[in-house]
């Protein structure tokens, strides 16, 4: 019995020593990293005034302005977008009007989408498609997509004299 008690004691002491051997200690903390990248949906134009100058009844001017205008569309919204053109009223001077059927837009785009210009598109008070974005242009930052346009105006032969003004609008939508 003494013999067994001695060996049991040795075993227990060894087990005790085993229990105080060190395990690797560690502690952790987690942090959440967040950022909100802002939505960009911008349309800009490089010039806001196009002067056809003095024209005679029956005269046609095209290639206006000579350098064209640049309409830049930028977005990172991830969706297809569309560029439209219209004017709220045709060329007007008092009660006199040059119909929109005499006023045309044409041009091209550096994008991958669809250009709706046929070379013979008349302005209208209803917005009409100029361009719809193509693959990859749902996020076209930082350069954006540029549409290049010029205008043609034919003054009717019986047009009354005067200073005629119209405001052309470009609209970018998703």
């Amino acid at each position: 019995m003494k013999f067994f008690a001695k060996w049991i004691s040795i075993f227990l002491i060894l087990a005790f020593i085993g229990n105080i051997s060190f395990a690797v200690q560690s502690a952790s903390q987690q942090a959440t990293f967040t950022v909100d990248v802002a939505s960009v949906f911008e349309l800009s134009i490089d010039q806001g005034f196009i002067d056809f100058g003095r024209m005679s009844p029956g005269e046609t001017k095209w290639n206006m302005p000579p350098a064209g205008i640049m309409v830049q569309a930028k977005t990172n919204g991830g969706k297809q977008w569309f560029l439209k053109i219209n004017n709220d009223t045709p060329f007007t001077s008092g009660k006199n009007v040059i119909p929109n059927s005499n006023f045309y837009w044409y041009g091209w785009s550096n994008g991958t989408g669809k250009w709706y210009g046929t070379g013979n598109n008349a302005l209208s008070v209803t917005p009409a498609l100029v361009y719809s974005s193509g693959p990859g242009e749902e996020n076209n930052l930082p350069q954006g997509t540029i549409s290049f346009l010029k205008f043609k105006l034919k003054v009717p032969e019986n047009q009354a004299p005067g200073n005629y003004i119209t405001v052309v609008k470009f609209t970018m939508t998703e």
Binding site: Q29, T32, G78
Partner: peptide
């Protein structure tokens, strides 16, 4: 050219 939206990630520090 980053797309708009809320981005997140989890960081873990350990001693």
């Amino acid at each position: 050219d980053q797309l708009a939206g809320d981005y997140s990630s989890t960081i873990t520090f350990t001693v």
